[in-house]
Simulated scan of single mutants.
Amino acid sequence: MAEPPPRREPAPVRHLARITDVALAVVTVVFFVAVALATGIHSPWRGTIPLALFLGALLLVRRRRPMTVLLLSIVGILVYHLTGDGTPAGWIWPAAVAYFTAATTPRVRWVAAIGLAQLVYSAIDFRWVLERNPARYVIHVAGEGLLLAVLIAAGLTYAAAMRWRERLRETDSRAHAAEERLRVSHEVHDVVAHTLAVVGVQLNVAADALEEDPAAAAAALRLAKDVRNRAMADLRSLIAILRDNPGDTAPQPDLASLGTLVADARAAGLEVTLDEHGDPAAVPAIPAIAVYRVVQESLANTLKHAGASRADVTIKYGPRSITVEIADNGRGAPADADVTEGHGLAGMRERLSALGGALTAGPIPGGFAVRADIPVAGSTA
């Protein structure tokens, strides 16, 4: 299977990220200049404003090059402190956003090492205050160290939260894919079961009539071929869902295809009546597919197992639910016997359960009956 391409964030998320970066750049520029002016800088255009603009511009690419942005920010701050005649206090905070962003990457140890080196240099650079005001010196160095620790811890926490969200998204995606594959397996079973039932009957007819009535045998073989071709088209559509690109899948059978099911069953020798009440055009797609599959599986079971000559299909379309009943006159189990469910009945039950519906199946006087109650999406029934 091909390697999936990197997941691209939705456009609103990308726009919000750009707005956030611009806002952080503006805040950094304004705050840096304000602190410089408050600490006695009289000629901000000599170095303060250019450095502020440089730090702000770097933040616009912080997501793509976090380590580069951090290193360039530190170099700019170092040059500013070495060449300026009076500088605002603080070495760590002007690069606060750069430190936080870099700490979200796998190179967090390098970030901590760089921050520690900058902190040591800051302590040495500020040593002239130690003799005059030891308390101020300790507060300055400790504050810088605490800020560095907070920024790195915040970056680590943010990165962990993003990884957890990504894992949760992947888990949800895998669960959805598993549900989809289970649904497809039910669809495949229904198609194969119906096809084998109808084709098997037609092949038996052809074998019996081959010598006495070649025309009837040929007609039976043509019908078996038609059913087989339709089934192959359905299977290709379903199998495409399991591939990387399900965009070319054909629509699933719906209520308009019930007539084909009935015609196939009649051609196989089963007398089938279809009685519909209500408006099938108002039924949403998902319940419509469920109705089709219930009728398909029930008629296939009747052809394969019941030995029935007649089946009555009754469908009642209501505004809140759909009721499907299929009753045949085959040799059902005794009324007090347990019904052993095969893959067909189990698949129908799971399908309807996923939609909030229910399935009952069992012997009735003179035959066997299946009843499905399917809620209509959006109803409050």
Score class of each variant (00 low, 15 high):
Thr171Lys: 13
Ala178Met: 14
Trp45Asn: 09
Val69Arg: 00
Tyr99Gln: 01
Glu180Asp: 14
Ala103Pro: 00
Tyr80Cys: 07
Leu148Met: 04
Pro106Phe: 04
Gln118Thr: 12
His42Val: 08
Arg65Met: 12
Arg127Thr: 15
Ala89Gly: 09
Ala135Ile: 06
Ala175Leu: 14
Ile77Trp: 00
Ala149Cys: 05
Ala89Leu: 10
Gly84Lys: 03
His176Gln: 13
Ile124Arg: 14
Thr83Val: 10
Asp85Ala: 11
Ala98Thr: 00
Leu168Gly: 15
Trp91Lys: 00
Arg132Asp: 06
Ala159Ser: 10
Leu151Pro: 01
Gly115Tyr: 05
Glu187Ile: 07
Thr68Phe: 11
Arg163Trp: 05
Leu55Trp: 03
Ala142Asn: 11
Ala52Arg: 07
Leu82Thr: 08
Pro134Lys: 02
Leu51Ile: 02
His176Glu: 13
Gln118Cys: 12
Arg107Gln: 10
Arg46Tyr: 07
Val138Trp: 08
Asn133Val: 08
Val61Leu: 09
Ala103Arg: 00
Glu131Leu: 12
Tyr80Val: 06
Thr83Asn: 05
Leu130His: 08
Val184Ser: 13
Phe100Arg: 06
Gly84His: 04
Phe54Thr: 12
Ala123Lys: 08
Ala135Ser: 08
Gly76Tyr: 03
Tyr158Glu: 11
Ala159Gln: 06
Val141Gln: 02
Pro50Gly: 04
Pro94His: 00
Ala103Met: 01
Trp93Tyr: 09
Leu182His: 13
Leu168Cys: 15
Gly143Glu: 01
Gly115Gln: 05
Leu116Gln: 08
